[in-house]
Amino acid sequence: MTVPALRVSGLSVWIGSGADSIQVVDGVSFDIDPGEATGLVGESGCGKTMTAMAILGLLPSTGVRVSCDHIEINGRDVSRLNTAQRRKVLGRDIAMIFQQPATALDPVFTMGQQISAVYRRHADGNQRRAHEAMLASLESVGFERPEEIAQAYPHELSGGMRQLSMIAMAMVCKPAVIIADEPTTALDSSTRALILHQLQQLQALHGTAMLFISHDLGVVRQSCRNVMVMYCGRLIEKTDCQNLFSHARHPYSAGLLSCIPQLGATRPGRISSIPGQVPALADLPSGCHFAARCNRSEPRCSESTPVLDAQDKKGVACFRPL
């Protein structure tokens, strides 16, 4: 039994304070093993990014409340660390790749300066060794002339090159876990394939665990072995990708899959959509949040909440799964 690279259990996030607070993440628990890539999919606003920010402890201290049983990286609980201790973890043991490389990088420092700064902060203060590590990292994401990239400012690079540099920055300390928040959404499709390929290669090379957040099931299928589906702040199904596409068990997952237009289908069939609307987070129904939109629901669905077995890799939070 290996120790999971990232273990999250019982993570909840509320926005606002007191009686007006809205729960945006509700009891999220999962494990990711070293070298494993797990996708987190769901519609926008379902709490995916909130989950990632809460894991890193990046949510603002005012107006947001976070609670969890524990968040472990390689078996070490990082959720109870104070700010100074947490800073040592961020970037060294767990790193994040953001959605918009154009704004997520500092425009007035070169890529080299930004990447070396991460290395010097966590690994080795020596300027020359940091420079070498930075160049090696840039090379490892596939740049043939890392020196040129190192001397470039973010605005001098294309979107894809910026995202590759961002990946190089995430990988420079060889963290145990990488969280990629919609890393390819802002890019065109040919660049997307390149980025996904590089991410997979690096992951295999260093045995890095990855939490891959996306609303795009197709991208998740390309890059992840396992997948978790999120709806209104809760994980509702965990399975591996193949299984999800062939035998989705939660009615919502099945609905989500049927929304993907089939390329090369002989006759353009109707693009289906899930009936009803996502309930407002401020006013969630009791029981299963999906019950009202579900064609398989029965009375107990709105009375009690179906639960997902916390650390299992597969499971579904539904009383009447498909």
Partner: peptide, 14 residues
Amino acid sequence: ERDHIRTLRAYGAS
């Protein structure tokens, strides 16, 4: 408020 400051925090900058 800018994104790249959030990046810094995510990478443990003081």
